[in-house]
Simulated assay, not measured.
Amino acid sequence: MRAAVIDLGTNTFHLIIGDLADKDPKILYKTTVPVLLGQGRINENMIIPEAFERGIRTLKAFKSIIDEHQVEVVRAVATSAVRSAINGQEFVDAAQAMGIDIQLITGDEEAAFIFKGVSALGIIQRTSLIMDIGGGSTEFIICNEDGLIWKKSYDIGAARLMQAYFHADPISDAERNTIIEVLDKTLGDLKAACMQYKPEMLIGSAGAFESFAILLNNGEDIGDIASMSLDIKAYEKLAERLLTSTHEERTKMKGLISLRVDMIVIAAILTNYILDNIGLHALSLSMYDLKMGVLHATKEQITSKAG
């Protein structure tokens, strides 16, 4: 059986098509489109007309690809930008009119799917903190080899923070300090949970962490690697370089895609904050994320029904 998963993120829409016949789903097709659904007015909870149109146009293209692959099951999940937008239901209705049923998932459900995706890799071998930096929200999951311990989604995505606080070029100390103050006010319960459960490793879920990995690899693509460890000292040097760079300098960094040229600065501030405040001693990348979690959950549902 073939299943498709569409992940409607705030910055990017992802499509993966998997064959569910084997124990682990086999990926037959995948693509990512920079839709920028949160462009311009995400903090006003509004999908602007240009972004709305880009999103629907992308879903039309995805529908054609899904039909070509003769997919039997389609799961489309929408996250922060759609669920918080006052015209989010209008977007869902427009997608449904062309045959794509979108499920609006909560931040809690998003975190659970992210955990399912990362855990499918088999890399959680000690108490770890998973971090997924989205455009609209950022999810944190504390887990160990036995399962999920604690999870929460916060409305501190890179696009939200960038639109609210990142206006100087390069980012100013005042802007950095303001973002850190926001994180101080927002992440108290995360810090308390980490003090209780003491995660040792930070696992970054795809997105910005893939960009960090590519930049640490001298701008060379990391290929189909599903996970890899990242040297914390090398990351810290990279983060300082990103935080002191201008927009133009970042556009020239080999391997940094245009979508992340500015948002990578916010991602570095977020990642630095977690490393500094939680006291983690190892950093790892997982390329399995929300969409892989939804695919694995879909396979489990189909298997249990068949059983």
Rank of each mutant, 00 (worst) to 15 (best):
M1Y: 06
M1H: 10
G9I: 09
N11A: 11
T12A: 14
D19I: 01
L20V: 03
A21V: 09
K23E: 15
K23Q: 12
D24M: 01
P25Q: 01
K26S: 09
I27G: 03
K30D: 11
T31W: 00
P34N: 11
Q39M: 07
N43H: 07
E44A: 09
E44G: 01
E44R: 12
N45T: 00
M46S: 03
E50D: 14
G55H: 09
R57L: 13
F62N: 10
K63N: 14
K63W: 05
H69G: 01
V73W: 02
V74A: 07
R75T: 07
V77P: 01
A78M: 04
V82R: 03
F91M: 09
D93H: 13
Q96N: 11
Q96K: 14
G99V: 04
G99P: 06
I102E: 01
Q103Y: 01
T106K: 07
A111L: 09
G117N: 04
S119Y: 11
A120W: 02
L121M: 10
I123F: 06
Q125E: 14
L129Y: 02
L129A: 02
M131C: 12
G134M: 08
S137P: 05
E139V: 11
E145V: 01
K152V: 03
I156F: 03
G157A: 05
H167N: 12
P170M: 10
D173S: 13
E175T: 05
R176L: 14
T178H: 14
K185V: 00
G188R: 12
D189W: 01
M195T: 11
Q196F: 04
K198W: 00
L202H: 05
A213I: 12
G219V: 08
D221W: 00
D224Y: 04
S229F: 01
E236G: 00
K237N: 07
A239L: 02
A239E: 09
R241C: 10
S245I: 10
T246K: 13
M253Q: 14
R260L: 11
V261E: 14
M263F: 13
I264P: 12
I266F: 04
A267Y: 08
L270G: 04
N277E: 14
I278A: 06
S286P: 10
S286E: 11
M287C: 11
M287H: 04
D289G: 14
K291S: 14
L295N: 05
S304F: 07
